[in-house]
Computed example of a mutant assay.
Amino acid sequence: MKKANLSFLMALFASLVLSSCESSGTQSIKSPTTIQGQTIAKPITYEVLVKNPDSNDEWQTECLENTDIKQMSGDIIHAVLTGKLKAYDYFDNHLLTKSEIKAILKKNGNQNNIGNIQFQEEWYWDKENAQLQKKVKSLMFGYEICGENNKVRGYRASFVVNLGRD
């Protein structure tokens, strides 16, 4: 019984801390005009889950409970289709045509099938201010590949979107 009470108190405390960090609505964030510090990764590539593939995994559910990438992914897909952003083939890096992009989107389904995002970033460590700054150079949506019982078996690469303005 004591263990259950302790677990409840810990969960309550965690939810209070997390809810105090939440903000409602859209907020404007000013990014630094210049990145300063020592380059520590140029580039680093890694994947981030944005949708829990296992509903029984409570920890992953908790980690992603405040994650909603629909707005961003919709904006990026729109920008790619209108030519504002460029999209490249994941395998051979050729610039994709609008019809190739549409075919990739049709094959992978809608935004609800995006399960992860692969980022390519540059990282800078500012020792004087003890701050890490990141600059996202590109990203790629990973679409869920489902097997038996609709369980996620892996992710299918979509296309690489170049965000670097250099």
Rank of each mutant, 00 (worst) to 15 (best):
T67S: 00
E62P: 02
L49V: 07
I35K: 12
P32W: 04
K84N: 05
D89R: 02
D68N: 10
I76V: 12
V80Y: 00
G37S: 05
P53N: 07
E47Y: 13
N66T: 05
S24W: 11
I40R: 01
T67R: 02
P32T: 06
K42H: 14
S24T: 11
S20C: 13
E22T: 15
N66F: 11
S19F: 13
I76S: 01
S24H: 05
C63L: 14
L18E: 13
A14R: 14
E65I: 07
S28M: 12
N56T: 07
G74D: 05
Y88M: 08
W59G: 03
A79C: 04
Q27H: 13
Y88D: 00
G74I: 03
I29A: 07
C63K: 10
K51C: 04
T45E: 12
T34W: 06
N52T: 04
L9D: 10
Y46W: 12
N66Y: 10
S15K: 15
C63M: 09
S23K: 15
S28T: 09
T82S: 06
P32H: 05
D68I: 03
C21A: 11
P43Y: 09
Y90Q: 08
Q71S: 11
P32L: 11
N66V: 03
D54N: 10
N52M: 04
I44C: 09
N52I: 01
V17L: 08
Q38L: 11
W59S: 11
S15P: 09
N52S: 12
I44F: 09
L49G: 04
D89M: 02
E22D: 14
A41D: 04
F8H: 13
G74T: 01
L12R: 15
P32D: 04
T26L: 13
A87T: 01
K30C: 11
F13H: 15
V50Q: 01
K70R: 12
Q71F: 08
D75Y: 06
I44K: 10
L49A: 05
T82M: 00
S7W: 10
T33C: 06
D57M: 06
G83K: 02
M10D: 09
G74F: 03
L85M: 00
W59P: 01
G25M: 05
S23D: 14
Q36D: 06
Y46M: 05
T61Q: 08
F8M: 09
W59R: 15
D54P: 04
T39S: 12
T33K: 13
K70T: 07
I40S: 01
A41T: 12
Y90H: 10
Q38A: 13
S31W: 14
D75S: 06
G25F: 05
E65V: 01
S31T: 14
